[in-house]
C-alpha cells in the first residue's frame, strides 16, 4: 500500500515537472536577458582592448604574454594555440557574436558561437578569469537552449516585419536562469565560513573587502566612521545569500497554493521575491559604485531581468501530451515560477 502511495506521489511529481517544462510564455524576458548578455560581452571584451590587454593576458608567455596559457579548449587549439592571431580571432569573434546577440540576429546559433569564443578566451588560465566569466558562459549555454530572439530582435523584424512579437516560447530557460541565480548566491553563502562573515563573528567582512587594494575604486578609510553600518551590511549579505535557496519554497507554495495549509498561507502572505530582489539589486549597485570587479554586477543584474515575467497568458504547448488538466497546471506553474500574479493574468 505504501509502495503504491509512493508511486502515485512520484507520478504526480513527474506530471507536474513535465507540465512545468512544457510551459510557454511570451519571449520578452528572455529577449531582454539576451540583449543584456550581449552588451556585457561587448563590455567585457571591449574593456580588454581599451586597456591594451589582449596581447598581455590572452597570448602565451612564449609569444610575449604575461603567463603560460592552456589551449585545452578545442577552438584555441584548432587556431594553433595561444598566439596573437588566435587571441585576435577570438576577440573579434566574441565582439561580432556579442553584437549579434544584442541585436538578436541568428537565433540560438549566435549564442552557440558566442559561447565558443568567450569560453575559449576564458579557459586560457583559471587565475586570469573571474566568477563573472562563469556567469556569462552559463548564460550563453542557456541562451543556446532558449528561443531568445522571438521578440525584440532583428530575427523578429526579418520574420514578421516588426521588432516585437507575441509568439510564445518555452518558459523553462527562464526558470533555469532564475534557478542559476539562486544557486549562485546559495553556494557563495556556503563558501563564506570565515569568522568575519558568520553569526557570532565580527561581521567585519565588508570593512576588509572595501579596504582591499585589489577591489576598491578609491580610498575607503572614511568608512571607519560608519563601521557599524558595514557590520550590518555584512550580516544582511550573509543571511541573504545563505537563505536565498529557500526562495524555492516560496515558488513551491505559489505553485501549490490551491492545496491550502497554514505553511503555504504563511509563505504567501508577502511576495518574498520583491524584498529579495531589492536587497540583491542594492548589493550589486553598491558593489558597482564602490569596488571594481569588472562586469560582475552587470552580468548578475542581467539575470535579475528573468525575474520580471513577460506580461502574457502562459499556456502549455499542445504537444505536451498531458491533456487539458495538465495544461491548466502548467499555467499555475508558470505563475509560480516567477510568472505574473493571478490578478495580472486575469487582466
Amino acid at each position: 500500500m505504501k509502495r503504491l502511495a509512493a508511486m502515485l506521489l512520484l507520478r504526480r511529481w513527474w506530471a507536474s515537472w513535465v507540465a512545468l517544462t512544457s510551459t510557454r510564455e511570451r519571449g520578452t524576458s528572455l529577449a531582454r536577458f539576451r540583449i543584456a548578455v550581449g552588451l556585457v560581452i561587448l563590455y567585457s571584451i571591449g574593456s580588454m582592448i581599451a586597456a591594451d590587454l589582449v596581447e598581455v593576458m590572452w597570448i602565451d608567455a612564449e609569444y610575449g604574454g604575461l603567463q603560460s596559457l592552456s589551449d585545452w579548449h578545442w577552438l584555441a587549439s584548432a587556431l594553433g594555440g595561444r598566439t596573437p592571431t588566435t587571441a585576435w580571432v577570438l576577440v573579434s569573434g566574441g565582439l561580432v557574436s556579442g553584437a549579434m546577440l544584442a541585436v538578436g540576429l541568428g537565433g540560438r546559433w549566435t549564442a552557440l558561437v558566442a559561447l565558443q569564443f568567450y569560453y575559449a578566451l576564458n579557459t586560457a588560465k583559471p587565475t586570469l578569469t573571474g566568477g563573472y566569466d562563469t556567469m556569462v558562459i552559463n548564460a550563453l549555454w542557456l541562451l543556446v537552449l532558449a528561443s531568445s530572439t522571438a521578440t525584440l530582435s532583428l530575427d523578429c523584424r526579418l520574420r514578421t516585419g516588426s521588432w516585437r512579437s507575441d509568439r510564445l516560447v518555452p518558459a523553462w530557460p527562464r526558470y533555469l536562469l532564475i534557478l542559476q541565480l539562486l544557486v549562485v548566491y546559495g553556494t557563495t553563502g556556503l563558501y563564506k565560513l570565515s569568522p568575519v562573515w558568520v553569526p557570532g563573528g565580527s561581521h567585519s567582512a565588508l570593512w576588509w573587502v572595501f579596504q582591499e587594494p585589489t577591489w576598491r575604486r578609491f580610498d575607503m578609510t572614511w568608512l571607519a566612521s560608519a563601521y557599524p553600518l558595514t557590520q550590518l551590511a555584512s550580516a544582511v549579505t550573509w543571511w541573504w545569500e545563505v537563505l536565498t535557496p529557500l526562495l524555492l519554497l516560496y515558488y513551491w507554495a505559489r505553485h501549490t497554493a490551491e492545496r491550502g495549509g497554514r505553511l503555504r498561507r504563511a509563505l504567501l502572505r508577502f511576495d518574498l521575491r520583491k524584498p529579495w530582489a531589492a536587497i540583491g539589486i542594492g548589493l550589486h549597485l553598491g558593489i558597482l559604485a564602490l569596488i571594481n570587479v569588472g562586469p560582475f554586477s552587470l552580468i548578475s543584474l542581467s539575470y535579475y531581468l528573468c525575474l520580471i515575467p513577460p506580461g502574457a497568458e502562459p499556456s502549455a504547448e499542445p504537444s505536451a501530451g498531458a491533456g487539458a488538466s495538465e495544461s491548466a497546471d502548467a499555467g499555475e506553474l508558470a505563475d509560480a515560477s516567477g510568472g505574473e500574479s493571478a490578478d495580472e493574468r486575469r487582466r
Partner: peptide
C-alpha cells in the same frame, strides 16, 4: 561551461 564555483570575498 555550465559550472559554478563562486568564492568571491569568502574570506576577505
Amino acid at each position: 561551461g555550465s559550472r559554478q564555483g563562486w568564492r568571491m570575498f569568502a574570506s576577505p
